[in-house]
């Protein structure tokens, strides 16, 4: 079942780090000119999918278990113990149980997926993930025919995740997908970035990645996966149902109540980064639009 989706990009699309540095210097030099930007071209176009630098991906994170600042996770996530780690798979499956992380990895095929990552806060990155298809893991557990949804849960360990001592959200963080979304070839469990083990601040040792949905759907440091026939509760929906729906598909036509979702800022462009238009389903419309056929996406946010 692995390798059901291939990047259309090749390794040559990965910009070498030196080129990035040169570009940064150029932008620094253009500081004065940047102010004229307001009258200039409205938006830059996305011409190639260039993965963000490792430093951007690993220092700019939303992981409220380690603090609400973007740099808090990078500073605090070292406290998290990820070994030993196991994932409990239960609910409507044939083989429920605790699966040790090593055992999962021994049975999964890890591949590279270069995906756009669009946060609900209107910033985005391109991340070269390493991971395996969630479908493979679910098939390992044996999904029963009545199951319709998949519920996910993040580790709850306030001693190591100090943010859990504050009621910013209800802990533990929970997320959910419809079964067909979970089984989709684009949906992966990521265990690495740039071929290295995924850092704690990015959701070690394994996290969900659903590239056509807003980032908060891609739950980190997963310890439990439950197959169910009921739509499971999800953390941001519990916190504010008007702003965060169960589906939370990237959709430039439906604004967040507090800001526009029509455009986004790609991280890494410095102080004078132009905005780029947000793509329907984050650019994966061809692959996933059929999942939502006949649904009013203004209603099912």
């Amino acid at each position: 079942m692995a390798n059901r989706w291939k990047n259309t990009l090749t390794e040559t699309d990965v910009t070498p780090e030196t080129v990035y540095l040169n570009r940064r210097q150029l932008m620094g030099g253009a500081a004065g000119i940047g102010l004229a930007g307001l009258a200039g071209p409205a938006m830059a176009q996305e011409d190639a999918l260039e993965p963000n630098e490792w430093d951007d991906i690993t220092t700019y994170n939303n992981f409220y278990e380690f603090g609400t600042g973007k740099d808090d996770p990078a500073r605090n996530a070292h406290a998290l113990t990820t070994d030993p780690w196991s994932v409990k798979i239960d609910g409507m499956v044939d083989n429920p149980g605790e699966f040790a992380f090593e055992d999962i990895m021994a049975r999964m095929t890890v591949e590279e997926r270069i995906y756009r990552f669009r946060c609900v806060e209107a910033w985005s990155m391109v991340v070269p993930w390493n991971g395996f298809e969630l479908a493979d893991l679910l098939n390992l557990a044996g999904v029963q025919s009545g199951a319709k949804y998949v519920a996910f849960e993040t580790l709850y360990r306030p001693d190591e995740m100090w943010g859990q001592k504050y009621p910013v959200l209800e802990w533990p963080y929970v997320e959910g997908l419809r079964l067909d979304e979970a089984m989709h070839p684009l949906t992966i469990m990521a265990t690495g970035i740039y071929g290295r083990d995924i850092p704690n601040q990015n959701g070690a040792p394994l996290r969900l990645v659903v590239p056509w949905k807003y980032g908060f759907k891609s739950i980190k440091s997963v310890v439990r996966i439950t197959l169910t026939d009921q739509e499971p509760p999800t953390s941001w929906n519990i916190a504010n149902g008007r702003e965060y729906g169960f589906y939370s598909n990237v959709n430039p036509e439906v604004d967040h109540p507090r800001w526009s979702q029509a455009s986004e800022r790609r991280i890494g462009g410095g102080l004078f980064a132009r905005k780029i238009p947000t793509l329907m389903f984050n650019g994966y419309e061809e692959e996933v639009a059929s999942l939502y056929e006949g649904m009013d996406l203004r209603k099912f946010i």
Partner: peptide, 15 residues
């Protein structure tokens, strides 16, 4: 700081 990377990966919101 914003011009030299001192405000993190996304300096605009930070500034």
């Amino acid at each position: 700081l914003g011009l030299t990377g001192g405000l993190g990966a996304e300096p605009i919101k930070a500034l």
